[in-house]
Nucleic acid binder design. Structure first.
Lengths: 228, 228
DNA sequence: CGCCGAGTTGACCATGTTCAAGGTGGGTGG
DNA sequence: CCACCCACCTTGAACATGGTCAACTCGGCG
């Protein structure tokens, strides 16, 4: 477990909970506040299940969350990973089409959907953030589709690493919150292929692997070339 | 070319243009109307280019449109096909991240983005439809990702056929507006694999192929089994 | 009638999967 | 504190699925 990451995020989380700017009803003194309840989840705990009533949607305060779908034969496809500040589990319909699970220990805020009147006008800020979320989420999904389409294993892994390098801010060291299996299910590959590809990249001096959950980017250009 | 389809859609289009309920500013007598201009495109004509300024977004009146991306080495990934009533080319950013192209001869309405004030309150209906579009689009993309993930060729083709059977209303005969290449680039396969898979399905009596652009569904259950 | 682009089919090949056998390191209990 | 353990990861060899290349067919149109 990445204890450093978790620790760092926890100190952040205490501030983030109170500073959360998503729904400011508390500040506005409204009756039926839609400000959410804070929840903690340990790694691999289910946050909501595919098919369940989608009464709540969530925002990540700290840690990493995955949304995924299980197929009949046990295969799993991870749709997305969500980090601090991102909304997940917001459904157009009445039920969740994906499961939500904690990748690492994490803290989330749950918002009651019915308390959020999307078009009341007074909730303009909410509308704005939700539309923004939906657009962002759409873009993310489209890029994911592109990634899963006609691309080789090395390309996929390179894109994945660059994505997390960008997200984590640090261009040189990427701390992966998720297991090889998670990466595989996200990229539509097997753990063996992920492992082999990373090893090959290390042999090619593109990256170094100080530990299994840490990747050091050595040759950014080479990675970017791979990602087309 | 599917001349029957085109003809049918054209008679539809004349009505649809005037009946278009998307933005009703004309009826409301507003000054800077955001009601759009109608455009026709012949098959394979580009509607907007990846990277261009995303000043307009579009709604399909008739025909089929594809949004896609080209990779450096010539590979193409089709993100989505859009049919009558669907919005496409609505970007969160300033430029298009995908190209839009006519699959068949088609008619679209173009709306100026800057004329659509998303949160003015008076444009509540616009907000509602755009949020609805964004959510729908998000769902579509997620399902596409799931489709492209760890699934075999037969599964992919089965899901594709069922999707179009649903969309076209007719559960028995599906008229495909797009070429094998389009299907391949949408499913992340090659034309050869599409061809082989369809042939195999015909041999297995799941479908019949009266012509290249027509698929008759013979064993719906078998197809649904394939699609998991 | 013959051309041409789109689609089909076949043979071979490459990439990633599967199956199986080690490695490794963080955590626990003696 | 060390040894063990177990889950996670890595590596290897055989295999399968889909890609590539090439030949051929079909159907629409001049």
């Amino acid at each position: 477990m990445p204890s450093q990451i978790t620790a760092a995020n926890h100190s952040l989380s205490e501030r983030a909970i109170w500073a959360d700017a998503f729904l400011k009803e508390e500040a506005n003194g409204r009756k039926h506040s839609s400000a959410g309840a804070v929840h903690h989840f340990v790694a691999d705990r289910e946050i909501f299940a595919e098919g369940a009533n989608a009464d709540y949607f969530y925002k990540v305060i700290s840690g990493v969350v995955r949304t995924c779908k299980f197929l009949a034969d046990g295969r799993r496809q991870i749709d997305a990973f969500h980090i601090a500040g991102e909304i997940f589990g917001f459904e157009p319909g009445a039920t969740y089409r994906l499961s939500g699970e904690a990748v690492s220990d994490c803290t989330v805020v749950a918002y009651r959907k019915k308390h959020v009147d999307l078009f009341s006008g007074t909730d303009a800020m909410v509308s704005r953030e939700l539309l923004s979320f939906a657009m962002h989420s759409m873009t993310r999904s489209q890029e994911h589709s592109l990634l899963l389409g006609r691309r080789g294993a090395a390309e996929k892994v390179a894109i994945f690493l660059l994505d997390w390098a960008k997200r984590s801010g640090d261009r040189k060291i990427v701390n992966l919150a998720m297991s090889r299996q998670d990466i595989a299910d996200y990229l539509g590959l097997t753990i063996e292929t992920i492992s082999r590809t990373l090893s090959q990249m290390e042999r090619d001096r593109m990256i170094a692997l100080p530990s299994t959950r840490q990747v050091q980017v050595r040759d950014l250009d080479a990675l970017e070339d791979l990602s087309c």
